[in-house]
């Protein structure tokens, strides 16, 4: 820059940053984070997960998964179970529909696992039919050991340690 100024002594030097690539990148990042946050919101319905004392749980791996959410309702107990953005009632019809949808996905993806996220305040009476439904959904999907289910819990120590 100083060399140029010396060559063009007396001339005004126009300086300007080309911001176009930066703006391009910024927009790409915005789009990316909007999409990721939407995906995360679909999978992670806000709820109070069980917090075992001295947990023997494992970190969640990156295997393909179906996330079934059982969030607490107004009076702690839920009215429906959600798979992605679809809510299924906890009545026999709703659970049958959930079973059909789970079986379809399990058949399409042999490696897929089911993550069960249930609020810790929910009575077991509401969780048990969902576990039964998941177990039944593995019928005819070529899984001799049954459906691999991951019970999702919260590890308070891990949460504290993660930046």
């Amino acid at each position: 820059m100083s060399a140029l100024s010396r060559l063009d002594a007396g001339r005004p030097v126009r300086t300007g940053a080309n911001l176009t690539p930066m703006i391009d990148m910024t927009f790409l990042l915005v789009v990316f984070f909007v999409l990721v946050s939407r995906i995360t919101a679909v999978e992670q319905v806000p709820m109070e997960l069980p917090v075992p004392t001295d947990p023997a749980s494992n970190p969640a791996d990156e295997t393909a998964r179906i996330v079934v959410n059982l969030a607490a309702g107004e009076l702690a107990n839920p009215r429906s179970v959600t798979l992605d953005q679809t809510a299924y009632g906890l009545d026999p019809d709703g659970l049958r529909n959930l079973e059909i949808e789970l079986r379809r996905r399990l058949t399409n993806s042999p490696e897929v696992q089911v993550n069960l996220r249930a609020d810790r305040r929910i009575d077991y009476a509401f969780v048990a039919p969902v576990i039964d439904t998941i177990a039944r959904s593995g019928r005819g999907t070529g899984r001799p050991d049954g459906v691999r289910v991951n019970l999702v819990v919260m590890n308070e120590h891990e949460r504290g340690a993660t930046p």
Binding site: A135, V149, L151, V152, E158
Partner: peptide, 29 residues
């Protein structure tokens, strides 16, 4: 961009969440 990829790979959006693995055989069927 390199930093972005690095942090994306190193970040978990489910902070603190862990799992118990359980196989559910369909005993009824």
């Amino acid at each position: 961009f390199q930093l972005l990829i690095y942090f994306l790979l190193g970040t978990s959006f489910a902070v603190g969440e862990q799992t118990f693995r359980m196989d559910l055989p369909d005993r009824g069927g």
